[in-house]
């Protein structure tokens, strides 16, 4: 039976139920650590492409297309998350 849950600012999420997902190989974890230390002020922002929506149109955006401009890149937990 479905349970009623309180909603907060973090969007409710699910995940695998039951048996635990096997741990990643050690090598993979190490690589992930290296990636997560890439962000530092004074260093280049990692380039990326992403699908987007703007003013009625679906678009594709690449960060490096904005070279020459100031960029504010904002992440957030999810649409409709209140604040």
């Amino acid at each position: 039976m479905a349970k009623e849950v309180k909603v907060g600012c973090a969007r409710p999420t699910g995940g695998p139920v039951g048996e635990k997902v096997p741990e990643k190989a050690q090598g993979e974890e190490k690589q992930q650590k290296e990636v997560s230390t890439m962000i530092q002020v004074g260093r280049k922002a990692p380039d990326f492409t992403a699908p987007g929506y703007r003013q009625g149109k679906f678009i594709s955006v690449q960060l490096s297309d904005y070279l020459g401009k100031w960029v504010l890149l904002c992440f957030y937990p999810g649409d409709f998350t209140f604040v």
């Binding site: 004074g42 280049k44 960060l63 490096s64 070279l67 504010l72």
Partner: peptide, 9 residues
């Protein structure tokens, strides 16, 4: 993130 015109954070 504030990214300048050179792509630097």
């Amino acid at each position: 993130f504030i990214i300048d015109p050179d792509g630097v954070i």
